[in-house]
Amino acid sequence: MEQPPSSPDQGLIAYKVDRVLDETNTDTKILVLSRQDGQSDTFPIWIGAAEGHAIKLALDTTLTPRPMSHDLIKSIAEHLNVHVRRIVIGDVKNSTYYATVYLENNGVERTVDARPSDAISLALRTNAPLYITEDVLARRNTANLDLWLAKQDKNSMNQQEVRES
């Protein structure tokens, strides 16, 4: 396996998609990522309903009669012999997370800016690893998280395991 990208100082922590939760009364979903290196951590990202649906389809490996948008991106990449090497959530500004998709074709690496939902939707379909930078983990929006956890408590929807340690 190749090493994760760029400066060695930029610590990358592996995460995986845990689940997609419905946010009650809104048109949004919560994408829950869980840390993979033994430490217990959950990283929620608020995403749109359509984006949540696209991720759910990939998580459940649902076969759709026709290719969905991210299946098409995967198919285009396959046709061009472009491989999705990894996804890095590397920035957060004004509560918006930024993802970078690392592509490779015949040794030529290119990066593409994307919303985390699109990047992850593609990563799930291409079995590409997902990382979050330590910088982003340190700057995550805990205000949102607290609000969300409070809601989870109130709803007590059997989500006890989704909790900050």
Binding site: I76, V82, R110, T111, V112, A114, D118, A119
Partner: peptide
């Protein structure tokens, strides 16, 4: 849009390799 939507991202993947 402030962030690339899904088809903007699709286009970016093509642009990255000049397809």
């Amino acid at each position: 849009p402030p962030r690339p939507m899904t088809h903007d991202f699709m286009k970016s993947v093509l642009d990255a390799y000049d397809a």
